[in-house]
Design a protein around this nucleic acid. Structure first.
Lengths: 337, 337
DNA sequence: CTGAAAGCGCTAACAG
DNA sequence: CTGTTAGCGCTTTCAG
């Protein structure tokens, strides 16, 4: 077991106490800045601690204090996806203000791995969990939630349980995208989407369909592809959709990775369809890509906020925060075929 | 203290033992899959654990086992910078195989914050530390390193101590970039760089200078700007450099953020200088940007590997891993003014 | 203001 | 194969 090498000779509080000639408890009080310690004593203890290079052992402290750590777990499908790393950043920033630290892990969109990661974090006694879930069944969290563990779902809403969640206005965002394209005269509009099982995908496709129906467009199935979970898949799917006869004059891509793949597929084409992407991304401005934008860091912050509320003792029913989206026009929607 | 709310009534091993009618230690053995437990007993214990919803308490376990957790700390300047989030991903993947978990934090390029974060992680008794440092003085780590804590520096090398490190071939990468531009006929080559105090920046500028000297180009100071730590700064700096008379015909940007800023500054210009960026980035292919590429995930993996070696007991002198870079030509270097 | 005793939940060491 | 004892480092009673 690589983790448990001999602990080194870290000085303990007992040694600090011995060196400064006070009791264990007095040393503890002094270093924790509690009151009822004479300034003299406090100085002595601090000096001894300094000299020894003492560091309070949070493991022992947490154990004594009821066995909950000041860690919050974050599980996302891929830490290196810019969308999720921004979510993580927002969560980190907000949690930090409350003295909590973030421990994050990537689930690779794999529900078994997600459960393993959750189990590990629970063993570590995280104070709360932030999850972008890849599971369809969340029963494995029931016991924990009953025990009072705050769990907040980010981005994707669980279908089988009600719980705190922070989601995007997928419906509004997608409707705006479709309406925008329709206003510009597009009638054959395609969509390239993420894994079909994801709640985000389903919501976005439902909104897509509804908005098209509102414009009396019903012949869209042939222009829809799903289950693209990376840019390479998306690139292929875009080529496929463009090969349909007659080809769509516009395309909607439902997340940042898919938009990237689409841009690759469209590169060099003389007849480029219009494009609107869900999620903003770096250089979308330079590339002139119209997007449905939102604020990933804010998603992380809101998730953290929900957690802090629960830890502060807010009971009450699950809350659902919906984050607004905004259509940013950069020209790629106008491109007509 | 928000973290230490009443711990809930999590079942303990003692309760599992009681329910299954065995002793504490037997229950422990059974759940840890140790040998010398009869299959019957093991089943009984597992059933009881299941029924109670028991989760081993890693806090107690770590304390007992010498007080080192299976956490590894990662400190980077910004978790949402794609370069660093990829480093984190690589480290996570590799550490996970060894049963270690990653706890990451952003230092905002602030040395005081970096030290605070390190202190917090040490209190948490991380097994090791991976640091993209923002400090110039690393004395605060001496005591820890002497106590046997593995510390690995990523990307930026400490100037004041020798320690395990994973760095890029900044010299080779920058030389290739300059040579490439020179071969294409450029003589007035500018550089827009990161914070001047960073080792990476200094190495890249030194290589820039050396490569230019090798081509008998000495009049480059006027085309160099540093201390850009975000895209907005870089955008301004690029405009500035382009306003010099005569303007440079080519520009080198020394990291992904700066390249982004440069692309914004160049957008819409009729006379665009050539551009070569250090760091590859999403959509560089679509934008046709020539870059000095490398593998951020590999940096994280190598850092993790060094750590695992140290935890396995490898003593010996500090090791320095240098990761290769590669010039990827995509056309932006040819653009002559 | 300070100290002594107890114990958080677990596992290593040593008996049975 | 199983149980008992002790104690990781700290903080919370409860007495001085």
């Amino acid at each position: 077991m690589v983790a448990n090498r001999p602990a080194g000779n870290r000085p303990t509080l007992r040694q600090v106490a011995a060196l400064s000639g006070v009791s264990l408890k007095t040393a503890s009080r002094a270093l924790n800045g509690e009151q009822y310690v004479s300034p003299d004593t406090a100085d002595k203890v601090r000096a001894a601690a300094e000299q020894l290079g003492f560091r309070r052992n949070a493991i022992a402290r947490d154990l004594r204090n009821g066995g909950r750590s000041s860690l919050v777990g974050l599980i996302i499908s891929d830490l290196s996806n810019p969308f999720y790393s921004r979510v993580a950043r927002g969560a980190e920033r907000h949690l930090r203000r409350a003295g909590l630290q973030l421990i994050s892990a990537s689930s690779n969109e794999d529900s078994a791995l997600e459960q393993t990661l959750v189990a590990e974090m629970l063993e570590r006694r995280v104070s709360a969990l932030l999850i972008v879930t890849s599971c369809s069944d969340h029963g494995y969290l029931d016991a924990e939630r009953r025990l009072g563990l705050p769990v907040v779902f980010l981005d994707r809403e669980p279908a089988d349980i009600v719980a705190d969640a922070v989601v995007l206005d997928n419906d509004g965002g997608m409707r705006r995208a479709v309406e925008h394209l329709v206003e510009l005269g597009h009638r054959r509009i395609g969509l390239v989407g993420d894994l079909a099982r994801l709640s985000t995908h389903r919501e976005r496709v439902a909104a897509f369909e509804a908005a098209l129906a509102a414009a009396d467009i019903f012949d869209w199935h042939r222009y829809v592809r799903a289950d693209c979970h990376d840019a390479a898949h998306a690139e292929r799917a875009v080529r496929e959709v463009l090969a349909v006869d007659p080809p769509p004059t516009a395309l909607i891509t439902t997340n940042n990775l898919i938009t990237t793949g689409a841009l690759r597929a469209l590169r060099g084409l003389t007849e480029r369809p219009a494009l609107v992407g869900f999620d903003d991304f770096d250089l979308a401005d330079v590339l002139g890509v119209t997007v449905v934008a939102h604020d990933p860091e804010r998603m992380g912050e809101c998730g953290a906020e929900l957690i802090l509320n629960r830890l502060d003792g807010t009971d009450g029913p699950p809350r659902r925060v919906m984050l607004s989206t905004e259509l940013i026009e950069r020209g790629s929607a106008e491109a007509a075929s």
